[in-house]
Amino acid sequence: MSPTVRGPGPGDPGRRLALEIEPRLPASRMGVALLALAGVLLSTYLTLYKLGLVGDLVCGTGACERVQDSPWAYFLGLPVAAWGVAGYLALLVLAVVGLQPRFARSRGIAVLIFLASLAGVAFTAWLTYLEAAVIHAWCRWCLGSAAIIALIFVCSIPGLRRAR
């Protein structure tokens, strides 16, 4: 009887060891990186508008200009969009660093991404409230950013569970 050659199964101690040495890339963190990059691009566009470097916003309704030209488009003396660039850039760096094998299970990185995205969600919720209740106009780009930060927040949660 010839010996049967089998590959390592899920219960194989060798495979378990291999996974532990080189854990699979967490898809949620890759999602954070991609979403944060989209956020960087979106908020860069809005920042350039605030700096007067692009003409009209591609918006179609005039509502984006109404929101972006309102007094609430500034926070601590800087355009809100510029804060967005800084925030998304920080999340992008954290996500890329957190994807490196030595940090893939780092609790510190996971907590930082979670807290940064939580702060972003809270800030965006305030801005969305202002759009609805004070400015009475919806900026599509701002809503896009709100969706991005909400998704980043959701993607940050599995990282917390996985972290050591």
Binding site: V40, L41, T44, Y45, L48, V54, G55, V58
Partner: peptide, 12 residues
């Protein structure tokens, strides 16, 4: 993204 933003910049 950079190409799309650059196109907006060139419009002005």
């Amino acid at each position: 993204g950079a190409v799309l933003i650059a196109r907006q910049l060139s419009r002005k």
